[in-house]
Amino acid sequence: MKKRIGALLLVGVLAVGTLSGCGLAKKDEGSKESSGDDKAITIAASAAPHAEILEEAKALLKEEGIDLEITVFSDYVQPNVVVDGDEFDANFFQHLPYLENFNEERGTKLVSAGGIHYEPLGIYPGKKKSLDEVEKGDVIAVPNDTTNEARALLLLEDNGIIKLKEGAGINATVNDIEDNIKGVEILELEAAQIPRVVDEQAFSILNGNYALEAGFSVKKDALVYEEADSEAAKTYVNIIAVKAGNEESAKIKKLVEVLKSDKITEFINEKYDGAVVPFTE
């Protein structure tokens, strides 16, 4: 597998970690404070694909009289903190289950302003190249944040590697493994770290955005992945998140409208070859 692992894969601090280790890199020059008018939107985003999609949307928003100011973050915590703290208008990096869990754990008051796309979670080969080779003692790396770990475990269950307790669903943890059918070892790591250690484990499960940043193609490199028409696609759609009460603002509605437009849909389909799938209601 081809890997391009660079500065964007600075270790980020996820929902279960602390805030002190977060990374931030400016994408646009300008204010990092929430805009008080309808002529500018400040938004925090993951590098790929979120910031790339937003960059494509800038010109379309400019035609509507709105300046989009994008700042790239390398973690899953600070983008929510800065929106809840009114430093940014919105963020674009997460799915709704993650947001809801973050609100519960952190006491933030963030809501979805609209679903934009879906990124299939995939199982990628490392020391072993086929799931037919899975055997007792093999290490499989999974994201350690609450919602993405459950998602990874469900994918392992779907492929006959483990069996979860009935009803575990999107809240599943390693403690919900009822039957470790293949006798594998589940290694819980921060999602941003996993692409860096793919070759050290038998298999790894990667979040879509980190797979993209590391140069992996879900269609070409993943052994299996969540299907675009699956329940997971509806559950884990990536959203524009804002502080509660701001989802009805004219500029946020325009942002969502542009991101769901035919032009952006076409851009996503052409650029990401199935690694990012536009979401339709």
Results as ranks from 00 to 15, higher is better:
residue 183 G to H: 04
residue 183 G to E: 07
residue 183 G to M: 01
residue 183 G to S: 08
residue 184 V to A: 02
residue 184 V to T: 01
residue 184 V to M: 04
residue 184 V to F: 00
residue 185 E to A: 10
residue 185 E to T: 13
residue 185 E to N: 13
residue 186 I to A: 02
residue 186 I to F: 09
residue 187 L to E: 08
residue 187 L to H: 04
residue 187 L to D: 09
residue 187 L to P: 00
residue 187 L to C: 04
residue 187 L to R: 03
residue 187 L to I: 06
residue 188 E to A: 10
residue 188 E to F: 04
residue 188 E to C: 04
residue 188 E to K: 15
residue 188 E to D: 03
residue 189 L to V: 06
residue 191 A to E: 08
residue 191 A to G: 09
residue 191 A to H: 09
residue 192 A to H: 04
residue 192 A to M: 06
residue 192 A to Y: 06
residue 192 A to K: 05
residue 193 Q to V: 14
residue 193 Q to K: 07
residue 193 Q to G: 02
residue 193 Q to L: 12
residue 194 I to M: 12
residue 195 P to A: 11
residue 195 P to S: 13
residue 195 P to V: 09
residue 196 R to Y: 09
residue 197 V to P: 03
residue 198 V to P: 05
residue 198 V to R: 05
residue 198 V to G: 00
residue 198 V to H: 02
residue 201 Q to D: 01
residue 201 Q to V: 12
residue 202 A to F: 02
residue 202 A to P: 03
residue 203 F to H: 08
residue 203 F to G: 01
residue 203 F to T: 00
residue 203 F to L: 08
residue 205 I to F: 13
residue 205 I to V: 15
residue 205 I to P: 01
residue 206 L to K: 03
residue 209 N to C: 11
residue 210 Y to D: 04
residue 210 Y to H: 11
residue 211 A to P: 08
residue 211 A to S: 15
residue 212 L to I: 15
residue 212 L to P: 01
residue 212 L to E: 04
residue 212 L to C: 07
residue 212 L to W: 06
residue 212 L to K: 02
residue 212 L to S: 07
residue 213 E to I: 15
residue 213 E to G: 04
residue 214 A to W: 04
residue 214 A to V: 12
residue 214 A to H: 07
residue 215 G to M: 13
residue 215 G to Q: 12
residue 215 G to C: 14
residue 215 G to R: 12
residue 216 F to Y: 15
residue 216 F to Q: 09
residue 216 F to R: 11
residue 217 S to W: 06
residue 217 S to K: 09
residue 217 S to F: 09
residue 218 V to C: 11
residue 219 K to C: 10
residue 220 K to D: 15
residue 220 K to H: 15
residue 221 D to N: 15
residue 222 A to Y: 10
residue 223 L to E: 05
residue 223 L to N: 07
residue 223 L to W: 05
residue 224 V to D: 02
residue 224 V to Y: 05
residue 224 V to C: 07
residue 224 V to G: 07
residue 226 E to Y: 10
residue 227 E to P: 00
residue 227 E to G: 06
residue 229 D to Q: 12
residue 229 D to I: 11
residue 230 S to F: 00
residue 231 E to V: 00
residue 231 E to K: 01
residue 232 A to L: 01
residue 234 K to E: 06
residue 234 K to I: 09
residue 235 T to W: 01
residue 235 T to E: 08
residue 235 T to P: 04
residue 235 T to K: 11
residue 236 Y to F: 15
residue 237 V to Y: 00
residue 237 V to I: 12
residue 238 N to F: 11
residue 239 I to G: 05
residue 239 I to L: 15
residue 239 I to N: 08
residue 239 I to A: 04
residue 239 I to K: 05
residue 240 I to A: 05
residue 241 A to S: 14
residue 242 V to D: 00
residue 242 V to Y: 05
residue 243 K to N: 04
residue 244 A to D: 13
residue 244 A to E: 15
